[in-house]
Design a protein around this nucleic acid. Sequence first.
DNA 1: AACAGCCTCAACCGCAACGAT
DNA 2: TATCGTTGCGGTTGAGGCTGT
Length: 308
Amino acid sequence: MGRQPCCDKVGLKKGPWTAEEDKKLIHFILTNGQCCWRAVPKLAGLLRCGKSCRLRWTNYLRPDLKRGLLSEFEEKMVIDLHAQLGNRWSKIASHLPGRTDNEIKNHWNTHIKKKLRKMGIDPLTHKPLPITETPPQEQEQEQKQEQIQPVTSSNDTNLAEIQETKETDQKSPLEVDDHQEDYTFDTMDQMVMTNGFCIDEVPLIEPQEIFSSSTTSTSSSSSSTSSMCQDSTISNSNITNNNNLFEELQITDFEWPNNDIDLWGDELSSCWDLLMNDGDVAVDHSSISQCQRNIGSDHQDSWAYGIL
DNA sequence: AACAGCCTCAACCGCAACGAT
DNA sequence: TATCGTTGCGGTTGAGGCTGT
């Protein structure tokens, strides 16, 4: 039928976002919530398409994002989940609070793939690489080739592999479980065992389960994006029960991680600095102190500002 | 210091899925 | 059921930073 472009591309800005654009988007979403991304750029005064705004928010500006490299535990979880789910990055991300599908996908392509190959494991099938079939010389060449070519390219996806991946992807977790004896990543198995769940029944990992000293109860955040769109305001009952700030902000759906998580990277902090320093934004210090009490003071300088 | 090649990751693109009508 | 509009997902790209020479 011929799809329309997601937005009128004439005169729209592309490429990296500026601090000013970030500021506008954050301000708009905090005051209006997430709704109808197509309308967001217009209403927020941005020369971007809605898609770009959504991506920027979900992958970078969302306050519940964890910053920095994946921990070893998270990495292992990604490997395990990838073995079950294939390249379903959003599904994988939904098990890792504060991580985005894009982030996990990038990390997989740049780090984990290499690691697995070094360990002699095929990152596509999670089975041992066919060492005997490939003469050592070729292997050496492959390794060199891999060093030359960016791992993000499709250099490792020949037709057969693509086919294989698709077949693997189409397997349900139960089907995968049927072949669990093929799973060869021993440390992974150990991890799975020590954490008390089987590969085919990966639980929703709560932040407090990953970070043992957690105090607040939260639910999976990454998977909440779509449900957030249902509301015209962002909702989070976990926080609002005893927190005026978030009521004021109409932030009721955020999954604020606990104080063990580095919530705000420097860049985002600066965005929020920009936001709070803006003329139409005031800082509610009483709310800040309340937030500090609720969540802990480690990040008090970073995030606890109210927009009135 | 200058340059080239490599690496990372934010952002884009196109398609699929889904809901509304 | 068919069509349309919107959002979400996964693959891919390329700018900028990093590293080695």
